[in-house]
Write a protein that binds this DNA or RNA. Structure first.
Lengths: 202, 202, 202, 202
DNA sequence: GATGAATGAGTATTCATTCAT
DNA sequence: AATGAATGAATACTCATTCAT
């Protein structure tokens, strides 16, 4: 269920060698995503792992740092994508490719993005809040043409939101996850395309 | 900043007539929206109003009930809109009108909707969580055509999501709030229109 | 169910003329007996009667005073009995008569005595605690012969305790309440008789 | 005064090794017995021990659990006695032995039994309430002959109550505690004997 | 690489009581 | 004869964090 698989080849209890840090991150992310950041207590995380709270403090300085560490690991791809995007010409093809790759990133770390979406208030005063905003801002600067009409700027931004929405608000639609992801991507691509073309048509 | 203004014409402290209940709701909504539901304590609300915590309990049975009361008051318009929508033919014009009116409802109770958006995790296990889901579901059933292609269903849902996102994620764009609202509405209308027309074209 | 019946001949809501004080006492005693003194809140009493807490304060100065008023009304018979007993010769017949009459008093105000028995800790630091002790002490002085052997003194005290216990700890025995009361009375009388006779035999 | 002594040979404050749990139980029982369960707050217990309230929660999950733990430790002997009694023939000698041993158990955990007696109302809705009832029921089944006349059944039950009463309602009689315990035991034994013989005489 | 024991600050909630109307 | 509005003090309980071992 978790973002990163923890190889537990043998069912023995003695698998906890050097991987405790990872296990904490995995369990924490699952709980954060399910119940929210504030509602998830360190006691809960510790009990889920069958270690003491103090053990968490051996690996992380604070509760926030657990989140930060997960976040940093899992949002690195956004940075990479932005970096790549900046070096490309601002063509339609680039934008479409960004949208496509972003869709993959989202799918690859769904619990984290779900968490970020559903805990904006809690996350706002945490360091990750700012960082996330910055990373998203980076993406925006590539996708949104500052010379475009307001409507088209919004169309571009909305393309990204559509991807986000697609991850969580569409679960009841009647299709396989993969079909849905494809369809969402198509809609988002479409929006970014329309925005681009209308701008160039001016 | 609050949804409903509490006229305090005179600065005197002795204005505590019958309006305390309202004042609690107003202050609570502001704080919930700013800091999140969990992070906002009853102590904080009470201190903001210069009353004791016990006074809050005279007016509301629990913390949750404060939220519920605000929510019930402020989301009634969605119910009304859905009711109206159900009685209309499922034409393009109806859908556009729904989008337009929904945009107005959103603008009219912005702090609440911002709160709901940013506190989904916290709200999920509260009664308002379910209720909100239900109310949104009602809207969806009018706007989304079950016979439409998957992409077009997504386009419709995304239109609504765009309206929501538009309220909070677009603040840095360079335009007045009213211009932005108009533009967001235009994009959303456009999406719903495309979804409708593509479906009918089949 | 309550100690004193409140004539509610008509089912109308308007029966609350001058009897509110009484109704408070009745409801309070029932709740005190069921849940204990500490666990019964004035809110609960008020809600049971469909009046406000403040109304209770119109009739009684404090929570304790509600209990005191009930207690004073209902334990008067013990005082009367003691008064009567003092004027009698300390014969066996007198003691037996005391036991018999006390059994009736107990049966006539069962909820109060149950309450006193089950809430000794709570009642100890209330005025009624002291008062009750005093009243029981009065009875004891008549029934217990100071010249009797220790065992026989205990036998006498235990007779009274048997009456008390008989009211509540014997509910599962297979007999009608009236049969049980009679049987308990017989045992108690027997104990007091044995105590008396052994003493006189010396 | 407490049931179990906590050896604090040195008066130093730094004795907090592994005995905190025990100290909590001891202090709690003393306070519960003195003031009642409801009236005794965790703050009070904590302050008596010079630790914080949170420390109590490290050792016990709830206030009730403190009581349960004390209760379980201290009423185990009743279970043992019942177990023993079940394996014996239901002779007079067995019943007398049961009464004798029960008297010792009572004396050995006087504060707890005093507490149970004086806090029946409070204890009724706690787990210990049910458990205690069950344990007493076990004893009763051995001592009370179901074929005996109602009076004799009551006589047997009353024997047990006499033991209880003996612990608390006889403090003002003029004799040493040990003398009193002996005398109470004699009375109780007598009652059980009479009940037994009358039944067999039939 | 962890635990056992504890803390300080906080939380939502409840209670008996007051008082102007 | 009673209410509406409020208070001050308390309660059981939780949390993130610390630190000696």
């Amino acid at each position: 269920m978790s973002a990163r698989m923890v190889g537990t080849m043998d069912g023995t209890k003695q698998q906890r060698r050097g991987n405790t840090r990872q296990r904490i991150q995995d369990v924490a992310l699952d709980l954060f995503a399910q119940q929210g950041y504030e509602k998830t207590s360190l006691r809960e995380i510790a009990e889920s792992l069958d270690v003491t709270k103090a053990a968490l403090y051996y690996h992380f300085k604070t509760k926030e740092e657990i989140l930060v560490s997960i976040f940093d690991d899992l949002t690195q791809p956004i940075l990479d994508l932005t970096e790549w995007g900046k070096q490309q010409p601002h063509t339609l093809e680039t934008k479409q490719e960004i949208v496509r790759r972003y869709s993959e990133i989202l799918a690859g770390a769904a619990p984290l993005f779900r968490f970020m979406q559903e805990n904006q208030a809690a996350v706002r005063e945490l360091r990750v809040g700012e960082t996330f905003k910055d990373r998203m801002q980076g993406l925006r600067e590539i996708i949104v043409d500052p010379d475009a009409a307001l409507v088209d700027q919004i169309r571009s931004v909305s393309a990204i939101f559509t991807l986000h929405a697609g991850m969580f608000f569409i679960q009841d639609l009647d299709a396989t996850p993969e079909e849905k992801r494809k369809a969402v991507l198509e809609v988002a691509t479409d929006m970014v395309t329309q925005a681009h073309q209308r701008t160039k048509a001016t």
